[in-house]
Simulated scan of single mutants.
Amino acid sequence: MPSNNIAPLPGDQEEASPVRPLSAEEARRVREQIPQVSPWWVVAGQAGVGFVAALVAWALTGKQNVGWSVAYGALAVVVPAAVFARGLTGKFSSLNAGSAAVGFLLWEMVKIALTFAMLAMASRLVAGLSWPALLVGLVLAMKVYWVALAFARRPKTIKS
C-alpha cells in the first residue's frame, strides 16, 4: 500500500518509489559537492570590477565624466546587491524553507526597485552623464556573478 494519501489510478502497479530520503551522512556529502559562493564575495568583486573599469574608462577617454558614468553604472549594481546580500544573510532568512523563499523574493524585489531608482536618478547625480559608459559599468558589474561562480570552491571528489 502506498505511503502517501493519493489513491493510485486504475491499472497502476504498486512500485517502490524511486525517491528516498537521504541520511544525514549522505546529505552532508551532497552539500560538500556543491560550490559555495558568499554573496559578500560577489559584492566585493562587483565593486572592484567597477572601480577598475571606471579608472580604465577615465584613462582611455581622458574625460572625467566618462569615468564617473562607468563608476555610477557599477554602483547601480553594487549597492542593490549589498542590500540583497544583507537581507539574505539576516537572522530571519534561515528560519525555515518558507521564510527563506519569501525573503528571497522580497529582497530580490527590493534590489530591482533600488536599481531602477538609482538609474532614474543617474542624470541628476552625475554631471555630464554618458549613458553608454554607464551601461558598460552596469554590465561589467553584473557579469561578476559568473566570474565568482568560475572561481568558486570546487566540489570534492566522492571517495567510496
Rank of each mutant, 00 (worst) to 15 (best):
A120L: 13
V56C: 04
R124T: 09
G45N: 01
A16Y: 08
A117D: 04
N96Y: 13
N5M: 13
S69L: 02
V56E: 01
G90K: 01
A47Y: 05
P80I: 09
A122V: 07
S99F: 12
P132I: 08
R31Y: 14
W40E: 03
L75I: 05
A100S: 15
V19G: 02
N65E: 12
R29G: 00
E25G: 00
Q64H: 10
L95A: 11
A97R: 14
G62L: 09
L149H: 09
R31E: 15
A71L: 13
P18H: 12
Q46P: 02
V66K: 00
V49G: 01
S69Y: 03
E32S: 12
K91A: 14
V83Q: 01
R124Q: 13
T89M: 14
R31T: 12
S160W: 11
M121H: 02
L55C: 09
V43I: 11
A57V: 03
D12V: 10
L149Q: 03
A74F: 03
T61A: 03
V77I: 14
A71V: 01
Y145P: 00
P39D: 04
A113M: 10
L95T: 13
R154Y: 12
A44S: 12
Q64F: 05
G11I: 11
V56W: 01
N65Y: 10
A54E: 10
L138I: 02
P39I: 04
R86G: 12
P8F: 08
V126M: 11
I158A: 14
K111R: 15
M109H: 07
A127V: 08
S130W: 09
P35A: 04
A53P: 03
Q46H: 03
V66Y: 08
I6Q: 13
E14W: 13
R153Y: 07
S3R: 11
I34H: 09
A117F: 13
L135K: 05
T89A: 11
F92H: 08
K111V: 12
Q33R: 14
V110T: 15
A76M: 07
A133S: 11
V126K: 10
L22W: 07
G98L: 14
W41V: 11
E26W: 05
A127Q: 13
S123M: 07
L125E: 04
V144P: 01
E25Y: 03
W131V: 15
T115E: 09
V144Q: 01
G87M: 04
A85V: 00
N5E: 14
E32W: 04
F92T: 05
A81L: 04
G48P: 06
W58Y: 15
L129M: 07
S130L: 06
L134Q: 06
A85D: 01
V42E: 03
T115F: 05
W40A: 04
G87I: 02
A141V: 03
L88Y: 05
V139W: 06
L22Y: 08
N96A: 08
F84Y: 12
A85R: 00
G128C: 06
N65M: 07
T61C: 02
K143G: 11
F51P: 00
L55M: 13
A82M: 13
I6K: 12
L134G: 06
L125G: 05
S160T: 09
S130Y: 10
S123L: 04
